[in-house]
Amino acid sequence: MTGAYLGVDVGSVSTNVVVVDGDGKILARRYLRTDGRPIETVQKGIKQIGEEIGDKVRIAGAGTTGSARHLSSMIIGADIVKNEITAHAVAALNVNPQVQTIIEIGGQDSKIIILRDGVVIDFAMNTVCAAGTGSFLDQQAARLRIPIEEFGSIALQAKNPVRIAGRCAVFAESDMIHKQQLGYNIEDIIAGLCEALVRNYLNNVGKGKEILAPILFQGGVAANLGLVKAFEKYLGQEVIVPENYDVMGAVGAALLARDAVSRKRTTLFKGFKIKDLTFKTSSFECKGCSNLCEVVQFYQDGELLARWGDRCGKWEVQAS
């Protein structure tokens, strides 16, 4: 059996699980909706991947990323836990070593990563507001009863995109509704929304950044052709959507795991059997001092594996 690497990216909207070979080529991949249940979704993803290729490869290393990266590392037994920015950069460099700009838009986050000579030199991420991210597009698609998958291609049919205020998702929605009630075409409104999101992105996370080609567009939202076109229009440059744009974070985590185990040569991965384990979390408020920290406890098959959330560290037990 050949050695392969597992990457798990648990985000607000989607949970992605991939298995890659030593060169980062994808052997198996799953894109699941997190649906607010990260633990079950990770188990489900691992189960499906295990059924597909569990008997063909040996997992030599595992990594996690995404906003639930610490939680998912406890579930699968990860060799490395990395933030999404580093994971996306690593995956993008593997696809295109010359990449200088990464646009990444996910469910709740949008980020820009600036690289030079294969190294991240700057990045920015939306801080206070999630305007212009995948969740908002999801909502608007649902409101218009358009499958999100068709959202982008409808935008491409627009002849005359209307102007939508993109500064804030709530403002954008009311502006869209006003325009729709005035009788504008749905495709012109959707295309207008795409342009508003791009303006907001460039003006917010992209502010002050030197955006040079090659530009890679990653994250679930890159499926939206209307946005790709709007980015190209505003940047005046080609925007490349890599083949596995929607699971790049997971690929990055797998590649980082490969590098991590190359040094220590063993893996902490618990194996595909984790689908049969029960994981549970509970939390309590520590009354030890006035901080009243909310401490989370993590159990595997009834056994306490880890605690976190306390500021002073007194509840922390290391997972063995």
Binding site: S67, K82, N83, E84, I85, T86, V119, V120, I121, D122, F123, M125, T127, V128
Partner: peptide, 25 residues
């Protein structure tokens, strides 16, 4: 930017990435 949000996961992500960047540099 600091506002009403009390979830610290977002800040942690950005800080971790920033530290990665600084270390590489």
């Amino acid at each position: 930017f600091i506002d009403e949000q009390t979830g610290k996961a977002g800040v942690q992500t950005r800080i971790e990435a920033f530290i990665d960047l600084l270390e590489k540099r």
